[in-house]
Design a protein around this nucleic acid. Sequence first.
DNA 1: ATGAAAGCGCTAACAA
DNA 2: TTGTTAGCGCTTTCAT
Lengths: 341, 341
Amino acid sequence: MKKGHQVTMKEIAKKLGVSVSTVSRALKDSPELHEETKKRIVELAKEMNYQPNLLAQSLRISKTKTLGVIVPEITSHFFASCISGIQDGANRRGYNVMICQSNESIELEMSNIKTLVASQVDALLISLSRETNHYEHLDDLYQREIPFVLFDRVYEVMPVTKVTFNDQGGAYQVTKHLLETGCRRVMYVSGPEDLYISKKRKEGYTQALEEFGIKPDPKLIKVTDLTLEKNIEVAQEIIDMDERPDGVFCMIDPVAVDVLTHWKSQGIKVPEDMALAGFTNNPTSAVVEPPLTTVSQPGYEMGKLAVNHLLDQLEGLASDEPISIVLETTLVPRKSTRINS
Amino acid sequence: MKKGHQVTMKEIAKKLGVSVSTVSRALKDSPELHEETKKRIVELAKEMNYQPNLLAQSLRISKTKTLGVIVPEITSHFFASCISGIQDGANRRGYNVMICQSNESIELEMSNIKTLVASQVDALLISLSRETNHYEHLDDLYQREIPFVLFDRVYEVMPVTKVTFNDQGGAYQVTKHLLETGCRRVMYVSGPEDLYISKKRKEGYTQALEEFGIKPDPKLIKVTDLTLEKNIEVAQEIIDMDERPDGVFCMIDPVAVDVLTHWKSQGIKVPEDMALAGFTNNPTSAVVEPPLTTVSQPGYEMGKLAVNHLLDQLEGLASDEPISIVLETTLVPRKSTRINS
DNA sequence: ATGAAAGCGCTAACAA
DNA sequence: TTGTTAGCGCTTTCAT
């Protein structure tokens, strides 16, 4: 399959009997040109449907006006929202975006970085894979002074700009909500314990308990690997407990949805038997029965903020000093938690 | 924010006292080199962490090994799945992918095409925006011999490769299912009538009715613009009908979910009062109460097929003749339709 | 087996 | 006001 020919400056120049530089100047509206020539060139360019070759341009000025984005999973609604925010923010400022997904694999994450760097992206926005537990590839970027920011799934000690949610605060809010609506034995269903968000949300959970004078009970913490099977296993374990909790806070909505589904199949009533809450505000959480109390994390905003700050830095509008941007979350109370009065 | 320096062939050449061409040859493992020189070069390159500048390479060989993708909405689960399939397929064959979303706007669609073409992508995969009702921008691509395929939202008469689902077949399946489970007054809730899928699914709906000897009744067709408000309005109109349908097939899941939610709030029981079915098999359709009967469209497969055929064409493994690939859908019966026996 | 040179399409310093 | 020249990093003939 052949590819059609693209009009170049050279051709325009030849047709008009001027030099390529004149064409170049005319096309970027340089003031030092004769109005007449400029007009002729611009008109012919339009007529011939000239499109600049961004490749050549980038090579020449060593800037691609392209950003690389790496997310763990494009099909996750949250990350899709982030991407959407990044795209919109980038486009508005004349930048393009190359998106890669790591599929939660550190290998792919590293190879994604490699190709994006080879493609000469001006900077990167990265959300780390679940598997990522060593950070040479990030160190390498840092070493080579390739600008990047981390968002949502960050490596805390990396001295670059990081954009995160106040996970602890969100977990605090939702746990407090459970306590305020009458729960006294609140359980936390955590994801893998080395995950940043697992830890942070646990901290918020503990904080709320302590504020209510409740001593955290290790029996009231369960861990899932986030697979459907394990989620169901955990759901069943909760049913089987001698002393069941009266409220359960799951680290992310999908876990809560799986738990809910299993419970319903086992005749457990939510919130009457046990209250249930999630985190993230996925679309599904709103449509399950009963609708799930959760914590909303605006991914679109996160993406937009991250890209805007990155571009501010790139373009010298903001200091290069790495900063940490923390977005607040909001509690979304729904029927899966008791509306006590 | 400055960007770090990248090692070039020139530097390697200088360090080793050889020419750039020799380095180039060594790095692509040309057979006509002295083994010894080759080894020295390759080793030094690795040591210096040399990464080829894809920009320069692309400019030279006029191939970027990059594909452009345009989807209406990245946050839609279906399109995210398509993208995922496209990415995986492309990466496996050494290609990168630049993704854009049109936000269902023809303006953005056109400008996306423009930037992708300017970025010299080797080919495009496009799913048209809802707004797209004229096609000069596609004609233009065609004229300029820039390879592209259309997927899911296609322009039927365009002589390029198109990948679609058997929408008519899917609609037929689900309507037939409604009829087989006892419905006799089956309604079709359509999206905007100029949409390709609105039409195709209506055809399948009509076909099933006719097969059951039922004459299509214009009163049993309603149209929504797919907004929440209009969906609810339609849901209420159905409730208010003198002669209600006993089964409703909505063109896409989100509509069905909105209808279901509204009905539940009005005390309508599904499927007892009316059966309900959707199309697409969105994640939400599985978790609503009752779970929604729907038709599954594997987006990942669609993306993979589309990209593989495109690359086959690009690389001469398949004929350039445009073909039409039609994927079959599968009925996913759930509790929102009566399980009659 | 290796090097010199040209050129991909563009920009920009320097000349004129 | 415009042209000439060099060069971004790479590949690829053509010499040697």
